[in-house]
């Protein structure tokens, strides 16, 4: 088993606040990890540190074999990040947006169409401005843009929020597929019940540190 995320005593500061205060965690290839914890526990920050968007100020952090203290940029091309924001150009049409995202990650336009179909965004919506989509539909387009890049590490922040029941099941299915094909998935979610969660492991953060860990399944 190779570790995809390996944190030792990581401290990260953002906006003058210690968002991670000595976090230890190791995540191995193929795991589906659910992050839990109350608001401000550090879930979002953990995902952003993994993505190299927040610098670490203390400790050791390795993501996909890259030392984040030396290089926060290189791992990014293998990572898909779904943040609180959808990262959408709301003026563009769905398909135009997807084409741009596909081209920006070096994928083909055909991949973009396939990703949209996979998320149940039908052709009918392709030439509609994103502005006019509902919150759930936007989230689907956002997940589709992430799918196009075929990331090895999936980082999702509250991916189930805004999705309807059908959308959630679809997302779970996609995440399971990704994990079974060798990708690693980390998602933050406090509303998902443990009994229905697809996670192979549940990690609880508190105050920017690890509080509970169900361990590798």
């Amino acid at each position: 088993m190779s570790s995809v995320v390996d944190f030792h005593n990581v401290v990260a500061v953002a906006g003058g606040f210690p968002v991670l205060a000595g976090l230890d965690i190791e995540i191995t290839k193929g795991e589906i990890v659910q992050l839990r914890g109350s608001n401000g526990a550090g879930k979002t920050s953990f995902l952003r540190v993994c993505a190299g968007l927040i610098p670490i100020s203390d400790g050791d952090a390795n993501v996909l074999g890259f030392d984040l203290r030396d290089d926060r940029r290189s791992p990014r091309r293998y990572i898909g990040l779904l943040g609180h924001d959808n990262h959408l150009y709301t003026d563009l049409w769905v398909r135009e947006h997807m084409e741009f995202r596909a081209a920006a990650t070096g994928a083909e336009a055909g991949d973009a169409d396939a990703a949209l179909r996979r998320l149940g965004v039908t052709d009918r919506l392709w030439s509609v401005p994103i502005e006019r989509l509902s919150a759930g539909q936007r989230r689907r387009v956002s997940i589709a843009s992430m799918l196009v890049g075929r990331p090895q590490l999936w980082l999702l922040d509250e991916p189930h929020a805004a999705l309807d029941h059908e959308g959630r099941e679809l997302l779970d299915e996609i995440l399971l597929d990704a994990a079974s094909s060798g990708a690693t998935v980390v998602f933050a979610s406090h509303e998902r019940d443990l009994s229905t969660s697809i996670a192979s492991r549940v990690v609880t953060l508190r105050g920017g540190r690890l509080s509970e860990d169900s361990g590798v399944a």
């Binding site: 210690p18 205060a21 540190r209």
Partner: peptide, 12 residues
Amino acid sequence: LEALIASRLRED
């Protein structure tokens, strides 16, 4: 900042 980190740890 150090005080904040310390208080986060204590709270934890």
